[in-house]
Amino acid sequence: MSPEAGREAADDGVRLQKLMAAAGVASRRVSENMIEAGRVQVNGEVVTELGRRVQETDLVSVDGVAIQLDTSRRYLMLNKPVGIVSSLQDDRGRPDLQRFVSRYDERLFNVGRLDAQTSGLLILTNDGELAHVLAHPSFGVLKTYIAKVEGRVSPQTIGRLTAGVDLEDGPIAADKARIIGQAGASETVVEITLHSGRNRIVRRMLEAVGHPVIDLVRRQFGPLHLGTLAPGEIRDLTKAELGALLTISRDATSAGADTDATEAD
Rank of each mutant, 00 (worst) to 15 (best):
S2V: 05
A5C: 06
A5T: 01
G6E: 14
D11A: 13
G13P: 06
M20E: 02
R28H: 09
R28S: 07
R39K: 15
Q41D: 14
R52Q: 10
V54D: 13
E56W: 04
G64W: 06
D70Y: 04
T71A: 08
R74D: 04
P81D: 10
P81Q: 00
D90N: 08
P95V: 00
L97M: 00
F100K: 00
R103K: 13
N110D: 07
G112P: 06
G120R: 10
L122W: 05
L122C: 05
N126L: 01
A131T: 11
L134I: 15
H136P: 01
F139T: 08
L142T: 13
A147W: 02
V165Y: 11
D166M: 03
G170M: 10
P171T: 07
I179G: 02
I180W: 06
G181F: 11
G184H: 13
S186R: 15
E187K: 15
S196C: 01
R200S: 04
R200Q: 08
R203G: 09
R204Y: 03
V209Q: 01
G210P: 07
G210Q: 14
L216R: 09
G222I: 15
G222N: 01
P223H: 14
P223Y: 10
G227A: 15
A230Y: 10
P231Y: 10
G232W: 14
L237K: 02
L237V: 09
T238I: 12
T238M: 08
T247D: 01
I248F: 05
S249Q: 05
S254E: 02
D260E: 04
A261R: 03
